[in-house]
């Protein structure tokens, strides 16, 4: 038993190995940073991977313009504290330039438009590898994806023809114009992430912790009130004690009612809960294969 890592240490070690491999194999990598807990954990792992040197790649945030203000504030303070490089791709710019057309109606979301802005940002900065905090336990299409996920020159994923990925030998070779999406924490579960955050004492946006908020209910999902959130006449604003299990764009992220205001309580709640965290994400519920279809088009 002496020379045995605990499972969290083993997952950490695997993620650090992959992040270092990315820097060694690619010319121009980036870390996609959403301000959510998974990308914050990836950022923390990247710091560990290169310490005491600085992280040798920029953070890229695709800003839908409909983010929670808490997310943006958190992002900016983290970047400032560590002196990291931040690149923002703006969905609003893509809309203004007429590259995408905004959805309308009550369930309108800019989540799908992100893909266009993401691909544009990748192209503009010539990123050949984008790391992200997606996990295989999140969703059934993600459960199928490799650590090194090859994308063709249109940014598309071909789920039926993925490269074999053997042992810890990652093949990042590619043709001109192609790129990779890389997922260092593929093998982590929601519980692993929370345990790690507790263990490592990692700062998170306040949205994850229980707080009072103006919300309204639509089809059983608790949405935050906000200026981008058109409401039907029957949808009444009320105050509730909530927190968020995942943080995406405001228009597609639902809250859960919860008194958990610290990490230990959140972990207890995660352990007892009977739904997946993406159960609060309306973007996955649009159809049975919503995630697979979005990924094929180049979504994260």
């Amino acid at each position: 038993m002496k020379y045995n890592l605990t499972h969290l240490k083993e997952l950490e070690s695997e993620a650090i190995f992959i992040i270092r491999e990315v820097v060694a194999q690619f010319d121009n990598p980036a870390l996609l940073f959403s301000g959510g807990k998974d990308s914050i954990v990836c950022y923390h792992l990247a710091k560990k991977a290169f310490w005491p040197a600085k992280i040798p790649f920029p953070l890229v945030h695709v800003d839908t313009g409909h983010n929670f203000s808490e997310t943006i504030a958190f992002r900016d303070s983290l970047v400032e504290k560590d002196g990291a490089e931040l690149i923002v791709g703006s969905v609003q710019d893509s809309i203004d330039q007429g590259k995408v057309v905004e959805e309308t109606g009550f369930n309108a979301s800019r989540n799908g438009l992100q893909t266009v802005t993401l691909l544009e940002t990748i192209e503009k900065h010539k990123f050949d590898a984008c790391m992200g905090g997606a996990r295989r336990d999140e969703e059934k299409a993600r459960a199928k994806e490799r650590f090194f996920s090859h994308r063709d020159e249109f940014g598309q994923w071909d789920p039926k023809n993925q490269r074999p990925e053997l042992w810890n030998l990652f093949n990042g070779m590619k043709n001109f114009g192609e790129n990779f999406r890389i997922f260092p924490i593929s093998n982590w579960t929601e519980m692993d992430v929370w345990q790690y955050i507790l263990h490592e004492n990692i700062d998170l946006p306040s949205l994850y912790f229980s707080h009072e908020r103006d919300v309204f209910i639509r089809e059983g999902v608790i949405y935050s009130d906000g200026e981008f959130m058109p409401k039907r006449p029957e949808e009444k604003i009320e105050k509730r004690i909530v927190r968020f299990r995942t943080i995406g764009d405001m228009t597609c992220t639902g809250a859960v009612e919860s008194p958990a205001d610290d990490l230990a309580k959140i972990i207890e709640e995660v352990a007892a809960t009977r739904t997946t965290e993406r159960g609060t994400r309306s973007d996955d519920k649009r159809s049975e294969a919503a995630m697979e279809d979005r990924k094929k088009e180049g979504y994260f």
Binding site: D137, E139, K140, K144, K160, S186, E292
Partner: peptide, 23 residues
């Protein structure tokens, strides 16, 4: 629960590896 791809569900077979986690 593991056959998550559209074509896997249509054909009733597994095409690529699915990773699942439990404790």
């Amino acid at each position: 629960l593991t056959d998550g791809l559209r074509s896997e569900r249509e054909q009733g077979i597994t095409i690529d590896v699915a990773y699942r986690y439990f404790a």
